[in-house]
């Protein structure tokens, strides 16, 4: 297998008695998008700050582009960049002035053209001569993203990059990121609380909780670790009859008063339940089924129910 772009080994960070990141190890390869997920305080931002060198790890090793990060930080940072929903730029400066500063900082050749291209790509070219403080939060997020792409990075660290963007712009940004990974081989570490976005974008996902990896895999693999499906039936029978039937099936259900029932059950139970309902002549007029999603995994982890999500465990 090719050498990873980023390799994190046994990273640890403690603040007094509180362990923010514990024994964290992972790799990101060229052209890969790795999602770093977890509830607030899970250790995602601490990890990104250690990868930027603005926070010193207590233990562990970070290897980027096959170089030790601690010894070659400046060289590595020339080919790395980041964006975060929590950073900003000097408000009184124009958008292009802010970007020119970072173009100088990253020694970008032909900076003017590069800035113009990025502003067009992110649909903000009309903001070029506007003071940063006058922009909406969505526009500011896009300017920060333009900064992150200025130096054609080979490694991008994106901490909630689409927070405050409307769905259309978020979609556009995701397309840009996909293009960057496929065409330029950029490796991306991506944190977000938008599970649908992570599911659509990331090749692989790591779930953190209390600084530890508690699950990892592709979004589909992780979602499949949740055995429960949601079956939604719309029926014409008296609700009491349906209630008695489902109680006998030993499944969880929520009987609405609109002729609908939401049943939580394992995938393998579905055919048998429907067969029996048909045999008993239930008048079912619609069947909907919801597969487990990454969001369900996130919710389980956030609520502390995660023994089944130990890395590498199977269903």
């Amino acid at each position: 297998m090719a050498t990873p772009i980023l390799s994190v080994k046994n990273l640890q960070k403690k603040f007094g008695q509180y362990t923010a990141v514990e024994n964290l190890s992972f790799d990101i390869h060229q052209g890969e998008i790795l999602g770093l997920l977890g509830p607030n305080g899970a250790g995602k931002t601490t990890t990104i700050q250690m990868l930027l060198g603005v926070m010193e790890p207590d233990r562990g090793e970070i290897i980027v582009f096959n170089q030790n990060f601690k010894k070659h930080r400046q060289e590595i940072m020339r080919k790395t960049n980041f964006s975060s929903a929590y950073i900003s730029f000097p408000g009184s400066l124009y958008v292009d002035e802010n970007l020119k500063i970072f173009a100088k900082l990253y020694n970008v050749k032909n900076a003017k053209q590069k800035i113009d291209d990025l502003l067009v790509m992110l649909d903000i070219s009309e903001l070029k001569k506007k003071a940063f403080y006058t922009l909406s939060s969505g526009q500011k997020t896009r300017v920060v993203l333009a900064k992150a792409l200025l130096n054609n990075p080979k490694l991008l660290l994106l901490d909630e990059p689409t927070a405050s963007l409307d769905p259309e712009i978020s979609h556009k940004i995701r397309n840009i990121l996909r293009h960057l990974t496929k065409e330029n081989g950029v490796a991306i570490l991506y944190t977000s609380h938008n599970m649908a976005e992570v599911e659509a974008l990331c090749d692989r996902v790591i779930f953190l909780n209390h600084g530890k990896i508690i699950a990892q895999g592709t979004p589909a693999e992780l979602a499949h670790r949740i055995p429960e499906y949601q079956l939604i039936l719309t029926y014409l029978d008296p609700p009491e009859r349906m209630r008695r039937f489902l109680a006998r099936q030993m499944v969880e259900f929520d009987l609405g008063d609109n002729g609908q029932v939401k049943i939580t059950l394992k995938e393998r139970q579905i055919p048998e339940l429907l067969r029996q309902a048909n045999q008993l002549d239930f008048k079912i007029i619609n069947i909907d089924m919801e597969k487990p999603k990454l969001e369900d995994v996130f919710l389980k982890i956030s609520r502390g129910c995660h023994p089944e999500f130990i890395s590498g465990s199977s269903r």
Partner: peptide
């Protein structure tokens, strides 16, 4: 201006 991380997170 919350620009410190941008600056110290650069080379």
């Amino acid at each position: 201006s919350r620009n410190l991380l941008n600056i110290f997170g650069s080379p």
